[in-house]
C-alpha cells in the first residue's frame, strides 16, 4: 500500500519504488521513535507522504486548476451512465488516468480516503493539514475528479456512438 500511494503521488514506477524503499528503510531506522499514538500503517503513510513531497519539491510540478462548476445530481448521474457503458477494465484505466491528471495534493487525499480507506483523522495525521482543510480539499477533489472524468468521457461517448 506504501507503493500504491507513492505511485499515485509521483506517477513514475521507478520513483515510486525508490520512495517505498526509502520509506521502509527510514521506518526501520526510526522504529524507536514510533510511540504507538497512531496506527502503525498511518505512521508508515506519513513517512511515505513526506518522502513523496520531498521528491515532488525537486520536480516542482505545478498545476493550473480548472474552474470547478457546481455539482448537480444530474451531472453525476449522466457521467455514471456513460461510465457504466464502458467495459470495467477500460473504465478503471480511464478513472486512473483522470486521477493522475489531478494536482498531487487532491489526488493523494482522494486516494488515501477512498482506496486506502483511511479515516479523516488519519489523513490529518499523515498530511499535517487541519481537519477542516482536509474536508475542503476532499470535497474539491471529488468535484475535480468528476469534472475531469466528464471531460475525458465525452469524446469516448461520441466515439461509441460513432461506431454504431
Amino acid at each position: 500500500m506504501v507503493f500504491s500511494l507513492a505511485l499515485k503521488m509521483v506517477k513514475s514506477r521507478e520513483e515510486a519504488e525508490e520512495i517505498s524503499q526509502d520509506t521502509f528503510i527510514k521506518a526501520y531506522k526510526n522504529l524507536s521513535k514510533f510511540k504507538g499514538e497512531s496506527k502503525f500503517s498511518t505512521w508508515l503513510y506519513k513517512i511515505t507522504y513526506r518522502t513523496c513531497l520531498d521528491v515532488l519539491k525537486k520536480t516542482k510540478e505545478r498545476y493550473v486548476l480548472d474552474v470547478i462548476d457546481e455539482v448537480t445530481i444530474n451531472r453525476i448521474k449522466s457521467t455514471d451512465t456513460i461510465l457504466e457503458g464502458i467495459e470495467q477494465k477500460e473504465r478503471a484505466e480511464v478513472i486512473n488516468n483522470c486521477l493522475l491528471s489531478m494536482p498531487e495534493e487532491e489526488r493523494s487525499i482522494l486516494w488515501m480516503f477512498y482506496f486506502e480507506e483511511l479515516s479523516l483523522k488519519e489523513i490529518v495525521n499523515v498530511t499535517d493539514f487541519s481537519e477542516a482543510n482536509v474536508k475542503v480539499k476532499l470535497h474539491r477533489a471529488r468535484k475535480m475528479l468528476l469534472s475531469i472524468v466528464e471531460k475525458n468521457v465525452e469524446p469516448e461517448l461520441i466515439k461509441h456512438y460513432g461506431r454504431k
Partner: peptide, 25 residues
C-alpha cells in the same frame, strides 16, 4: 449532492487495481 458524489467517487476509485512493485522489491 455530496452524498451522491461520495458514492460515485468511491465506486469508481475502488475499481482501480492496486499496482504491485517489481518482484525483487
Amino acid at each position: 449532492d455530496i452524498k451522491e458524489l461520495d458514492a460515485f467517487t468511491k465506486k469508481y476509485i475502488n475499481e482501480i487495481e492496486a499496482e504491485t512493485p517489481s518482484i525483487d522489491f
